[in-house]
Design a binder for these strands. Sequence first.
DNA 1: TCTGACCTGCGA
DNA 2: TCGCAGGTCAGA
Length: 269
Amino acid sequence: MPELPEVETIARQLSEYYVGKTIAEVDAKPARIYQNISASEFASALKGKKLEKINRYGKFMYWDAGKVYPVFHLGMSGIFVADKSVSNYPGHIHISFEFDNGRMLHFQDVRKFSKVFLYHKLPEFRQLGLDPTTQNFTLTAFRKLLNLRAISIKSFLMDQTIIAGIGNIYANEILFEAKINPFRPANKINKNDSQKLYAAISKILGLAIDHFGTSYTAYRTVEGDSGENQNFLKVYQQNGLPCMVCGTLIDKSVINSRSTFYCRKCQEK
DNA sequence: TCTGACCTGCGA
DNA sequence: TCGCAGGTCAGA
């Protein structure tokens, strides 16, 4: 599910509602989502802890709960809901937090592809590449990364060890914005196009954050609302519809087993 | 570098 | 009933 804009939206809402509050109770049901800890250990480690800060790196969200750091990757269908009444699938709630102000927070994942970790020091995410919302993501750094890889530019954008946070929806939208064919090898992107691509990454992700993310299927905000960015998509799931720029019908293809949407005219090879 | 598996719900 | 879906990773 969620790519960088959706995780950012959730992190911002959780910060607003829950930071500064103490976790009074944790009900963590055993599930395969726990990676380095059991559900019961996760619950007992967090009970009584004050939620100091909520951060995000790429598609990972991590909490600072006073020397305890739970880390969440939301997989394809993981969401946080403020109240069970806003959940479409209450039977798929895996963790429930009760805060000292009486407010509840539930973690739900229908498909159970999420991952939950717990660390006792600040996580560093060394296995991940640059987060495009950080200061380290410069045009110079981006061009260096491009030159190193012969894989398709779409695969490049979605490789979390190169750039952290871009998934299938935004890879398609970013390439359309930059007018670059998704099959082009990353190391064949020239100087002019690398500049356009670099700008498109920030623009598309920024707009999606402004629109509270894209709700194509499972994603909802903490309050159970849909995001709004699905109303602004130009190519993702638009196959067979005319391109907004030139009118050519949007094409659908497959790259690395993932649906790929692009305009053959605007994004010529 | 690519494919299939993981899991469940939905729409054609 | 079947194929597909925002992701990741092991294994070929």
